[in-house]
Amino acid sequence: MMIVGVHGIRCYRYLAEAGTPERAAKVLAAEWALALNRPLSAAYYAQLLHPGDTQGADEPETLPCDAQRMLKDWVSALGAPAEVTMGHATIPVRQAADWIARRFGEAARRFVIVFCREAHTYVSDRDSPRRAAAREEVLRVLEDAKPRVVVAHSLGSVVAYEALWHRPVELDLLVTLGSPLGMPQVFFERLSLGAGNDERKGQRPPKVRRWVNIADVGDIVAIPRDLPRLFPGIDAHHEVSLGLTASHKATRYLTRSEVEQELAPLLPAPDSQ
């Protein structure tokens, strides 16, 4: 397969419906392929970050303490006033979540809480077995499929970026969609690139020939949108508009002409595959 997709958060549902990680990967790959109009395979790791009991998952106070700090750092990056993100006990995290709802809607509030839960599971410990296992699953698929292109969405861009530093893989193109790689305090400072590599943070992964980033102008995950400022290894950066209700949706990103323009020089035309 010439393209491998790396998913972001809220993808455990594929496993819940399909029954096994292998089937979940195929279902997700089929969904992405339909949007992209090109065949691809998927690196599926959602089961490795699933928090287990999801009772109260929509309530910010149920987040681990570090994930609550992550949420407050996130809304600060979005421009929330200091009084929303400062205080004591659980009051500030509730204020931060409510500010998200007022600014972006209740669906965004729920999404941010779920995102912080999964992202915390990944980044809270540089050496956690779950973090290593997610990277290893991505690398296993890449080494088996030997793709020319990786398309990584959301949290998947963080997993893929780290994986490609920990064990470099030959790629013609890395495409990151709605990436939070540069989000201050939440991801950027927490990136783990492996022994001797952390000082190279921001560079293109060693065996990747070209890196393209695409960010929706209203995507609350893609912060800062001007990712090349922190990641000069990015060769091309496109800002797009997916619409208010779909500003972070992977399949909407995949339909963008900018994605096809980047793929076209490297791969056969869709109708010839």
Rank of each mutant, 00 (worst) to 15 (best):
Q68N: 05
I100H: 04
V93I: 14
W74M: 06
P81C: 07
P81I: 10
R69N: 10
V84D: 01
V84K: 07
T85W: 09
G79T: 11
M70L: 14
A108V: 04
W74S: 06
V93S: 03
A89S: 14
A96D: 01
W99Y: 11
E106W: 02
R94Q: 10
I91C: 12
P92A: 06
A89P: 01
R69E: 08
D98P: 00
R69W: 10
R69K: 14
A82P: 00
A82S: 06
S76A: 15
V93L: 03
W99L: 03
Q68W: 00
F104W: 14
R102I: 00
S76G: 11
K72A: 13
P92S: 07
V93F: 07
G105D: 05
Q95M: 12
I100P: 03
A77I: 09
D73N: 14
R103T: 11
A96F: 04
L78P: 09
I91T: 15
G79R: 10
G87E: 12
R94D: 06
I100Y: 05
L71T: 05
F104Q: 06
A107S: 03
A96R: 10
Q68F: 00
S76K: 15
R109V: 03
T85H: 13
A97L: 10
G87V: 02
M86G: 01
A97M: 05
W74T: 01
